[in-house]
Amino acid sequence: MTPHHVLVLGGTHEARRLAIALHHDPAFAVTSSLAGRVAVPRLPCGDVRIGGFGGAAGLAAWLRGHRTDAVVDATHPFAARMTANAVAATAAVGVPLIVLRRPGWIEGPGDRWHRVPAAAAAAALVPRLGARVFLAIGSGDLAAFARLDAWCLLRAVDPPPPPLPARHHLVVARGPFTADAERALLREHRVEVLVARDSGGELTAAKLVAARELGLPVVLIARPPAPDAPVVASVEEAVAWLAAALPGRP
């Protein structure tokens, strides 16, 4: 029996773990798709394609042309456009879609979190909380802070494109980072407030731990609305869903 061809829209730790699981299961043939925004990405197991599809129509054409049996959207929780394209394309082609999203973070004792709906709201709130800001949000939402009259610490895998805050210091680094390293970074740059996106996951939670230990306020940007598709929270759930949605195993 021919293995089921699964397209994994990836770029996350969970996507790489899912690719490993599917690559070693004879029931599946996996292709992982990476957006190409990082110059030197971490490549998952199996076949890999890098670059955009050209919107929902382009993705639908790719699914037809590559005889794809199912799609797993395991992109970053804030990759709303790619998720919307996946929903539209799979509906047009009639291919099942599952969304793999790690749970968001939960506030605990000692945390000083301020939840906001979007990056613009975070930029409006920050001046009331501190004058030295760590924008731990990647590069996607930095434009919302371009007019912020504060000193900003930025961190990214690759130098982000403009517009950027006028007064900023860029650290080019790839995580994950330990709580000790995050604590040292916050102290070194005398950070007074942390801005983060509610991406969830243990691998990126160290900055929140460090902020809690140092008593710093955190502005946490909410995730985009949930997609119109089934959602699972773990790699194991995604594999089980695929096995049920694609019956018959070689």
Score class of each variant (00 low, 15 high):
residue 103 P to M: 13
residue 158 D to W: 05
residue 178 T to S: 12
residue 200 G to E: 08
residue 228 D to A: 15
residue 161 P to V: 10
residue 61 A to C: 09
residue 47 D to Y: 04
residue 112 R to V: 11
residue 15 A to H: 04
residue 88 A to Q: 12
residue 147 R to Q: 08
residue 156 A to M: 02
residue 238 A to Q: 02
residue 185 L to R: 04
residue 74 A to N: 00
residue 162 P to H: 10
residue 88 A to I: 09
residue 195 V to G: 03
residue 176 P to Y: 11
residue 33 S to D: 11
residue 205 A to P: 10
residue 23 H to K: 14
residue 8 V to H: 01
residue 16 R to D: 05
residue 220 L to E: 11
residue 136 A to T: 05
residue 136 A to E: 03
residue 87 V to T: 05
residue 121 A to G: 06
residue 129 L to R: 06
residue 115 R to A: 06
residue 96 P to Q: 06
residue 247 P to K: 08
residue 32 S to W: 07
residue 193 V to W: 00
residue 199 S to V: 11
residue 226 A to F: 15
residue 144 A to N: 03
residue 119 A to P: 05
residue 152 C to P: 05
residue 210 A to L: 01
residue 134 F to W: 02
residue 79 A to V: 11
residue 50 I to D: 10
residue 65 G to S: 11
residue 202 E to S: 12
residue 37 R to W: 15
residue 219 V to S: 04
residue 215 G to M: 00
residue 240 A to Q: 14
residue 246 L to E: 07
residue 16 R to C: 10
residue 27 A to E: 02
residue 248 G to C: 07
residue 34 L to S: 11
residue 75 T to G: 12
residue 79 A to Y: 06
residue 152 C to Y: 03
residue 129 L to D: 06
residue 126 V to M: 01
residue 182 E to F: 00
residue 48 V to D: 04
residue 241 W to E: 04
residue 128 R to I: 15
residue 24 H to R: 11
residue 6 V to P: 02
residue 247 P to C: 08
residue 7 L to Q: 02
residue 202 E to D: 12
residue 216 L to T: 00
residue 245 A to S: 15
residue 241 W to P: 02
residue 189 H to T: 10
residue 70 A to G: 09
residue 190 R to N: 12
residue 198 D to F: 12
residue 52 G to H: 07
residue 222 A to K: 13
residue 52 G to R: 05
residue 37 R to T: 14
residue 201 G to D: 10
residue 14 E to A: 04
residue 163 P to V: 07
residue 40 V to W: 13
residue 10 G to K: 02
residue 5 H to W: 06
residue 2 T to K: 12
residue 99 V to T: 05
residue 210 A to W: 01
residue 142 L to E: 00
residue 17 R to A: 08
residue 201 G to P: 11
residue 14 E to S: 01
residue 178 T to K: 07
residue 20 I to P: 01
residue 40 V to I: 15
residue 39 A to R: 12
residue 223 R to P: 14
residue 125 L to D: 08
residue 183 R to L: 02
residue 99 V to R: 04
residue 18 L to A: 04
residue 78 F to R: 04
residue 87 V to W: 00
residue 74 A to I: 01
residue 80 A to V: 15
residue 200 G to P: 07
residue 92 A to G: 13
residue 26 P to V: 03
residue 175 G to C: 10
